[in-house]
């Protein structure tokens, strides 16, 4: 700007927060997804993601529209319903330098996309996978989704007769290396969890309860603002500390769990539940199940394996993006080719 009057805060990459914004949302006013978009903008800005390195992936549904609402300069991929994980897998394999961020919903993940979700986790592709979870289908006007809780009531009075699919419990069961649950209304908790997810090497699942103000925010719903606020069992508050180096934070022993992530960043979990250990997989499963039994929503970093090895590492995919290799790297040499042809004669 030529006027130079405004003093703009720049992040570690030297970019202003403006750069992390996108088109205006077309979702309903008050939609939880819009809050998540704002938290994402903050998280990406603070983390200092270079926009051109960001690949925004999504499927179909209200949630899947949101990649258009942040980081305009980044490439976005709004694919087909429930199939974002496969496209994300291809993109990451083609270019390991990309920070792959997937945004899905509860229908997109737990119904039509359940297969791809499971296999994504099983392969531990290095990506962040957000489920914007409101327990219903918005664009088709309010049908239950598979994450709706048993006994939850629709606006028209219909009661959900089926068990819920808990995408966090399922992820842990499948061997996920990073599983968190949060609430669209709790940016303080969500932003550092998002940043920890970016820093993690492997599939980082974040199930973010995100009320649908139009179709699922009434008495009897277990995904309403009111219900979530009343039943949010917070394991810990989280702080994210970017970058490598010694961490000098003083805290009372046993009150904080400090976890170093793949890129050297740290996530500090200030424990509210003193007994909770976010690196204990069985404990995480127990916490999810017990909270559900109490009708509560357990939020925080449920489980992380900081030593996780992602798909590209396991498959020996070169560091240099595969997309950049040329003829000389990829073709069989002339002499070897001649020998190969001889072996067929």
């Amino acid at each position: 700007m030529s006027t130079g009057v405004s003093k703009i805060n720049l992040n570690v990459t030297g970019l202003s927060r403006e750069v992390y914004k996108g088109s205006a949302t077309t979702l309903c006013a008050g939609c939880g997804h819009n809050s998540i978009t704002n938290h994402l903008i903050k998280a990406l800005y603070e983390y200092g993601v270079e926009p051109h390195r960001l690949a925004k992936m999504s499927g179909i549904g209200c949630s899947s529209k949101t990649p258009a609402y942040f980081v305009d300069q980044a490439h976005g991929f709004n694919g087909v319903h429930g199939r974002m994980p496969s496209a994300a897998t291809g993109a990451k394999l083609a270019n390991r330098d990309l920070l792959v961020l997937g945004i899905s919903g509860d229908g997109d993940t737990a119904s039509i996309g359940l297969g791809q979700y499971c296999h994504l986790i099983r392969r531990n592709l290095d990506m962040t996978y957000i489920v914007e979870d409101n327990g219903c289908y918005g664009l088709t006007k309010g049908q239950f989704s598979a994450t709706a809780d048993l006994g939850s009531v629709l606006k028209n009075g219909k009661v959900n007769e089926f068990e819920t699919i808990d995408v966090c419990g399922l992820a842990i069961e499948l061997g996920a290396t990073f599983v968190a649950r949060s609430f669209s209304g709790d940016g303080k908790q969500l932003v550092p969890l998002l940043q920890a997810a970016f820093a993690h090497s492997g599939t980082a699942v974040l199930d973010v309860i995100s009320p649908c103000v139009t179709f699922n925010d009434h008495e009897g719903s277990t995904k309403s603002y009111a219900y979530v606020k009343e039943h949010d069992y917070v394991l810990h508050s989280a702080d994210f500390i970017l970058g490598r180096g010694e961490i000098e934070v003083e805290y009372e022993p046993g009150s904080v769990q400090d976890i170093e992530l793949a890129d050297g960043s740290h996530v500090m979990l200030r424990k509210l539940d003193r007994a909770y250990d976010a690196t204990d997989r069985i404990g995480a499963l127990r916490a999810v199940h017990e909270a559900r039994g109490r009708g509560e929503l357990v939020t925080g970093l449920l489980y992380v394996n900081p030593a996780s090895e992602d798909l590209c590492e396991r498959e020996n995919v070169p560091r240099q993006p595969l997309k950049d290799f040329g003829e000389a790297d990829l073709r069989i040499g002339r002499a070897e080719w001649a020998k190969l042809m001889e072996s067929f004669a």
Partner: peptide, 13 residues
């Protein structure tokens, strides 16, 4: 899923 991966990879170059 296979074709999804192919197209994701093609998109990314």
């Amino acid at each position: 899923a296979a074709i999804g991966m192919v197209l994701g990879a093609g998109w990314a170059g």
